[in-house]
Simulated assay, not measured.
Amino acid sequence: METEELSNSDIEAQAFAFYAAGYDTSASTLCFMLYHLALEPEIQERLRNEIDVYLRTHGDQIDLETLNELPYLDQVLNETLRMYPSDDTLLRKAQNDYKCPGTNVEVSRGQIVLIPVLGIHYDEKYYPNPEIFNPENFARENLIGRHPCSFLPFGLGPRNCIGIRFARAQVRACVIKLLSKFRVEACKDTVRSFCFDPYRLNIAPDKKLYVNFHPRMDR
């Protein structure tokens, strides 16, 4: 097996790529999440209670090894990624000829296949009422039997996003910090619906999403 040694410049370039590629995508995910938390105060309250318990248990410290103690935060994040995956389409090259079962569609080796992530994420076969923000879509009992390829915000398999752990940790840490200090509320300028901006590379709203932040007085 051939090996290639990475130079310091290669490592620096890759590290920069992680931050550059992860900035807009993570910022958009956080924006969409806070928008829905502002519109859904009951969801926000449940999430805030989970965060408060987590911080009390760990002395107000956030640690990568303990983030799995926040299952509802994971549900909220996953639901955000379901409705607003950064990439709405994935491209893959077929390694072999393949006939799609139950159809006359044949894929030839070397052919580029477009996978409609957004279409899959809004398929009622996997997610009832897909237009509604519902973290219960990712409750443990609702994951049983669901096809693993029905959720593809980071792709899947050996070609999935290399920054998946970094992105998820970054967004979760930011939400924990924000909701431990602030309440997020809708305001008179908060839109109730929007379309996606067709001129943006990643999924983004065609309108500004305004919310209000109020300091918490109970902490």
Rank of each mutant, 00 (worst) to 15 (best):
L152K: 00
I51V: 12
A173H: 07
L156V: 13
P135C: 04
T80I: 00
A139M: 10
Q14F: 14
D123E: 12
R92F: 03
A15L: 15
T57F: 09
A169Q: 13
F196P: 04
D63L: 14
N129R: 15
K125D: 13
D10A: 05
I120K: 00
K188S: 15
G155T: 08
N68M: 09
Y127N: 01
I115C: 05
V107C: 00
F182Y: 15
Y126N: 11
R183P: 01
T57I: 09
S7T: 15
L73K: 01
E50W: 04
K125G: 15
Y122W: 10
Y122C: 09
E50G: 04
C195V: 09
C174K: 10
S9V: 11
H147R: 08
D197T: 10
Y35Q: 02
L37K: 00
S7A: 07
P135Q: 02
D97T: 01
I43P: 00
I11L: 15
P116E: 06
A17P: 06
G102C: 06
Y19W: 13
G119D: 07
L209C: 08
R140P: 05
E106N: 07
Y127S: 01
D197S: 12
R183M: 08
P158G: 11
V76Q: 02
R109D: 03
Y199P: 04
H121F: 04
D10P: 02
V191R: 04
R92Y: 04
